[in-house]
Amino acid sequence: MTDFPILALLAGMIVAATPILLAGIGELVVEKAGVLNLGVEGMMIVGAICGFAVAYETQSVTLGYLGAAMGGAALALVFGVLTQFLMTNQVATGLALTLTGLGVAALIGQPYIGIRGTTVGAVPLGPMREIPVLGPVLFRHDAMVYISILIVACVWYVLRFTRAGLVLRAIGENHHAAHALGCKVIVTRLAAIVFGGVCAGLGGAYLSLVRVPQWAEGMTAGAGWIALALVVFAGWRAWGVLVGACLFGGLTALQLFLQAAGVAVLGEYLSMIPYVMTIVALVIISSGRVRAAPCAPASLGLPFTAAT
C-alpha cells in the first residue's frame, strides 16, 4: 500500500474511524435532542446486513448504503415510537433494540454468510493522490469516508447556526420550556432518532461493504458501544466526535497491526482503551468546575409528556 508502515497505519486509522464516526455523529444529534438511544449497536448491525444484502443482490454499493440507511432508520423508528409515544423507558428500550437488532441481522444474514462482497473503489481524486504523505493517508479512500466528514460538518453547522439546530438543542436542554415556547418536542425528537438510525445504518454498512468486506454474524463487535462512548468523550460536540473517532479508530488500527506482528496480548489492552479514555474524559469533564464546560444535555434520557 505504501512504503512506510506509519502511513498505512494512518490510512487504516481513517478507515477504522469511519463507521464509529457515522454512528457517533448520529447519536450526538439524538442525544442533543435529549434522547438516549443505547440501541446503536443493534442499528449498526442491521445496517451492516441490509447494506451487504442489498448491495449483493443489486450489485450496487449506492443502493446498498441506501438499504442500510433504511434498515437503521426502521429500527430507530421502532425505538422512537416506543419511547416517544408509548413512553417506555429509554435505557431499557435501547438495550432491547441492540439485542433485537443482533437477532434480526443474524436472521437476515443466514444466506449471506461466507459470500465475498463487492469491492468499493477509491474516489478518483487525481493528482491529490500523489501528494507525498497526505496523498496515501487522506486522498485514496472511498466516497463514504468523505461523506461522513461532510455529515459532521453539516451537523456542526446546523446545530450551531440554524434555527432548526437551536430548537433541537433547546429541546434537549429543557423540554418543558421548549414546549411552552411552542417547539414540537416529540416530532423533533422522532426526527433526530431517525437521523441517528440512518447514520448508524450507514456506519454498519461501511463495515460490511468496505472495511471487511463481507457479512459475519456479530461483525460490529462493539462498534456501537464505542460510538456511544465517543459522544460522551467528545463532550457532545460535533468536531469532538471527529477527533475522538480518529483516536479510537487509530487504536483499532494499531491493534490490528500489532496482531499481525504477533503481539496479541497487547491488543486486548488496546481494545479496552476507548472505554478507559471515555471514563477519564468523563471524570475530567465532570470534575472541572469550569462554567460552560461541555456537559450532557440537561433533559437527556428524560421522558416528556405535554400537559394539555
Binding site: 430548537v167 429543557n174 420550556a177 421548549a178 411552552a180 415556547l181
Partner: peptide
C-alpha cells in the same frame, strides 16, 4: 413572560431570545 421553565441555562441570551 413565564415564571418558571422558560430559559435554557446552557444557551446564551441571544439564543434564548431567538427561541421565543
Amino acid at each position: 413572560v413565564f415564571q418558571h421553565f422558560s430559559l435554557f441555562d446552557a444557551l446564551n441570551v441571544a439564543e434564548n431570545v431567538a427561541l421565543g
